Simulated scan of single mutants.
Amino acid sequence: MSANSRLTIAAHALTWIGLYQRRGNAVATSEQIATSVNTNPVVIRRLLGELRRAGLVESRRGAGAGWMLTRELAAISLLEVYEAIEPGPLFALHPSTPDPECVVGNGIRPAMTAAYERAEGALREELARTTLEDVLRDALRVK
């Protein structure tokens, strides 16, 4: 099972756009962002489409086309980004109901549900505390 990198890529793209705009540029193209992320511009466009639906970015078409943030980096939390691109629970239970006659099968769902709710709650709290401004500040510290 591999880890999901969508939140990292989305945070990278949004933080890059924010810095680019701060440096006096109106919009960023998906090609420019993709170069920084080292991925295909199509991947960036799809992700930015989801972020647009969540109201975190806007796009401009035609001459001077590109993407821009709708708010400052300090006003966007990682939780907002996460919720925009990962709708749904972090963890899942069995796809089918375990054997209710089995001592473990009977109690595994409520036991795992409680553990998952605690874990997801802790994750959401941390993501809510962290803004894209924090991400940019920390990224710029690395040399």
Rank of each mutant, 00 (worst) to 15 (best):
L48V: 08
T113Y: 05
R23D: 14
A119I: 13
E83P: 06
G88Q: 11
V27G: 01
I76S: 01
A115L: 04
I108K: 02
N40I: 13
E101P: 07
Y20Q: 15
L132K: 00
E86F: 15
S2T: 11
A128D: 05
T8F: 12
A74H: 10
V104Q: 07
R71Q: 10
H94D: 01
Y20L: 15
G62C: 00
V57E: 02
L136Q: 04
A13F: 05
L56C: 06
A75V: 06
V104M: 13
D99T: 11
L56Q: 03
T39S: 06
R53E: 03
C102H: 15
M112V: 08
N106P: 07
E125S: 13
R60A: 09
A26K: 14
L56K: 01
L132F: 00
A84P: 04
H12M: 10
Y82A: 12
G107R: 12
A28D: 05
D134W: 11
L79S: 01
T15M: 05
E133P: 05
T8A: 15
L14M: 03
R71M: 12
A84E: 05
T8M: 12
L78P: 00
Y82D: 11
R22M: 13
A34M: 09
R45P: 05
E117I: 03
V81G: 03
F91D: 09
P95H: 08
R71L: 07
G88C: 14
I85E: 04
W67H: 05
K143R: 03
C102I: 11
R109G: 02
L56Y: 04
Y20I: 09
P95R: 10
D99P: 11
V57L: 03
D134Q: 09
L93T: 07
N4W: 13
Q32R: 11
T35A: 14
A74S: 12
L69S: 03
T113I: 08
